[in-house]
């Protein structure tokens, strides 16, 4: 994946690769059939290869069911990889026991979508923020309260609220608590899983700005998972677009928005609403046919071909791999037929 470096727009130490993902797949066994005896594999993530560089924000975009959240969990070792490797700063995450993973946990954190569900309702927000410190035995004794106060202040909350319970706070405030908790152990890498999706518009901007500021101040590296392309484009340096467990396009944020190469990226961009009536009325939308195919039984070859407006002969025959097209990485035969022929005996 060395050719990706030209696509880079990292803010700090742009050459250093912090996280490397190689052919990652996460399949879930699903029981089906009338007696629930037959086992099928739900291919939530099916062969991802990318890297995240130190100090950058990589946006991971896709619609529900594309496997983007599962990817985030697998990167932190919270979902077991069926295949492939995740390497964080030279150390393997996949296939490592929970005990061995613990030192790495301090350096990788996660922010969740649902600010109502991600905090234990029975614990005060101070206890929640202190939890990672307790787990890793950091800031012992009296220092811990000081650290919690510092973290709350960092995310724009008054330390006086540390003894309050989550239900006393609004969604945006709870999301700040979740961010403070994630940052408690001074991680390098933070997976933000749809951190603004369930917040109100005016609060979304507050959280986006906060994440942006924290990245600048603390030198964080983000994987920003979202379905909202406009928000991702705002915060990300590079964007990877996922469809049905695969990356279909990866490019720097500006390039992806201005000159999308993959038909799915184009459709996605054309569907994003713009707060501008005149442009909205003139826009031509690319409406996709049909529904998302089942990840239990994805189409052969290119898995977007069943809905693709530009499909042609090689699409069902050859499984496209990511390849370079200008400054983008695209998995589409429109940019040269490259990939593995479908094994007819497999399906």
């Amino acid at each position: 994946m060395s050719d990706v470096s030209s696509v880079s727009a990292g803010r700090r130490d742009a050459n250093k690769v912090l996280l490397e993902v190689d052919d990652l797949a996460v399949w879930f066994p699903v029981k089906s059939g009338p007696l629930r005896r037959e086992k099928e594999q739900l291919r939530a993530v099916d062969g991802l290869t990318f890297e995240v560089r130190s100090g950058e924000t990589l946006g991971l975009v896709g619609e529900s069911g594309c496997g983007k959240s599962t990817t985030g969990m697998a990167l932190l070792g919270l979902e077991k990889a069926t295949r492939g490797r995740v390497v964080f700063d030279g150390r393997e995450v996949t296939g490592t026991s929970r005990r061995q993973l613990r030192p790495l946990r301090r350096r990788m954190a996660m922010i969740f979508q649902d600010p109502y569900g991600s905090l234990n309702p029975r614990r005060t927000i101070g206890e929640s923020v202190a939890e990672p410190l307790a787990i890793h035995g950091l800031y012992k004794g009296g220092q811990r309260a000081g650290r919690v106060a510092e973290l709350l202040r960092l995310v724009g909350l008054s330390p006086d609220y540390r003894n309050r319970y989550p239900h006393e706070f609004s969604g945006g405030q709870r999301q700040r608590v979740g961010i403070a908790r994630a940052l408690a152990t001074e991680p390098d890498f933070v997976v933000c899983d749809e951190p603004i999706a369930s917040l109100d518009v005016s609060i979304q901007a507050q959280i986006l700005n906060l994440l942006d500021r924290l990245q600048r101040e603390l030198g964080l590296t983000y994987l920003f998972i979202a379905h909202d392309l406009s928000a991702v484009q705002h915060i990300a340096d590079r964007i990877a677009v996922m469809y049905l467990g695969r990356i279909v396009e990866l490019a720097d944020a500006k390039g992806l928005g201005e000159d999308p190469k993959h038909p799915y990226t184009r459709a996605l961009l054309s569907a994003v609403p713009l707060p501008d009536p005149k442009r909205e009325r003139q826009r031509k939308r690319i409406l996709l046919e049909g529904d998302l195919p089942s990840p239990l039984n994805p189409p052969t070859g290119c898995n977007f071909r069943t809905r693709c407006p530009d499909r042609f002969e090689p699409c069902p025959e050859i499984d496209p791999t990511l390849q370079k097209a200008d400054d983008h990485l695209v998995a589409c035969h429109l940019h040269g037929v490259v990939g593995e022929p479908v094994d007819a005996s497999a399906e």
Partner: peptide, 26 residues
């Protein structure tokens, strides 16, 4: 299945901690 249990897991919490602090009180 609640997110806060996953969140605690993502912080490296042991099973004992998950059960006693996060599951049981709820």
């Amino acid at each position: 299945e609640r997110v806060f249990v996953t969140a605690a897991r993502s912080l490296g919490a042991s099973d004992l901690r998950l059960v006693t602090l996060h599951v049981l009180p709820n």
